[in-house]
Computed example of a mutant assay.
Amino acid sequence: MGYHGSNLSACLILFFTIPLLLTLIEAKGNKSTNLSLDGPHRTGKLFSLFNVVRFPNEQCISRSDPTMRGTCFSQINCQERGGTPDGNCASGFGICCMFVIQTCSGTVVQNCTYIQNMAFPGSDTTVSQTCNFMFNRIDPNICQIRLDFDTTVLQTDPGLPGMCGGAGDSLTVGSPLSGSPFAFPSAICGTLNGQHMYIESSRMGVTAGSLTIETGTTPGNRRYKIKVTYVDCHSELRAPSGCAQFFTGVSGTVTSYNFQGGQILRNQDYTHCIRQEEGFCQFEVFETPGVANAFSVSDDALSRIQRCKNQNFVTIPSMAVQDFTTIIIGNTDYRCGMVFSSQFGQSTPGSLLSTRDTPFQIQFHTLVADRLGLVTFANLKGFSLDYSQIPC
């Protein structure tokens, strides 16, 4: 029985059209994956047409956990890098490749890697343990590393409220390059869910930074899932030098580490930076609406300005002000007490307008120990402040 002419024509059209269409599937991007559909051992003119399908190695969403992000690779490239496939990407031509370190200590060699405690999503109860994580320099144009504390709960010292280390746990970072003493705190602990931290890195050396988690002698549950993102030197997400945190957008919320845990931390010196958006020249700061004790950094029940240098304080470059009781000449950057306001001695929260200095920033400093009549750490929570940028 012979073939009908219509069926033969259809077969010929499909035979030549499908490879041709596949050769045209090419995504833009400097870093991309070449996907071979015919396998590494197939040769010939026809099947070589399948070798040019490309797609950018962008972030993708994990199928098993939509809150986690992976990198879009071909299945072969994912396996070669030691990743785990978890869903599809690039219209089905790639797989979402997940990188997770779930051991005590390890080396990060891929962008978008998660560091998790060994029992995650459960908690670990091991005490007196040190876990070190090194960040390899995966590209010469890496200038910063961003840590996102998706889920991080560490114990504070029960005998010294707000103390990280000793009987409590501590999370510390190391940077081969830091141009400011306010670049990041000496150690943090407590409840850090949703917080983040930037680490500055030079362009030289094998190591771009490090992270150390130490558990103290206090029994308790610890758990952490920390996302590691490498920030390119030319990225819009690169923070100004000396910033522990970097916020974008015309409005947002800035909180001190462990504000969720309800306890201000000791020995903190770091800077929150806000990207100046186009067409905006200043920013306004005020206590986060609806949050109880949104500003609680020192013992004074009223708002205090400028006379804060011997206690915990927040600094915001701001305009000089005059109130009914005193005239303050010059900068009025310092804020302390339990009420945030532009005026001295207020019992009702108010807003504060910054100067036009850039970058927009909020610095935070706390003491190492209580100071009689000024700072009692057990009574202090930290701060949650909202900002709104003001058009020029």
Rank of each mutant, 00 (worst) to 15 (best):
G252E: 02
V52A: 14
F280S: 02
G194L: 11
Q322D: 13
V250P: 08
A294H: 07
P185M: 10
G279P: 05
S202G: 15
T130Y: 04
E277G: 02
T366M: 01
N51C: 00
L37S: 05
S6H: 14
M338I: 13
G166P: 03
M163A: 15
F280C: 05
A187V: 11
F344V: 10
P176E: 02
F364P: 00
I305C: 02
A10L: 13
Q155T: 12
N293H: 11
C104G: 01
F47S: 02
N141S: 14
T126L: 15
T33W: 03
P19C: 07
I274K: 02
L37G: 00
P161D: 09
L265S: 01
C336W: 04
C243E: 08
D333V: 02
F360D: 06
L177T: 10
Q343D: 13
E58K: 11
T215E: 11
S318Q: 03
G373I: 03
R304P: 09
P19G: 05
F360G: 08
I305S: 03
L160G: 11
S202T: 15
I226Y: 01
V53C: 03
L211C: 05
K225N: 14
H272I: 01
L302I: 12
M118F: 13
G92A: 06
F15A: 13
E284Y: 06
S9H: 12
T125D: 07
G209A: 11
T326P: 00
E214H: 14
L380C: 08
C308Y: 02
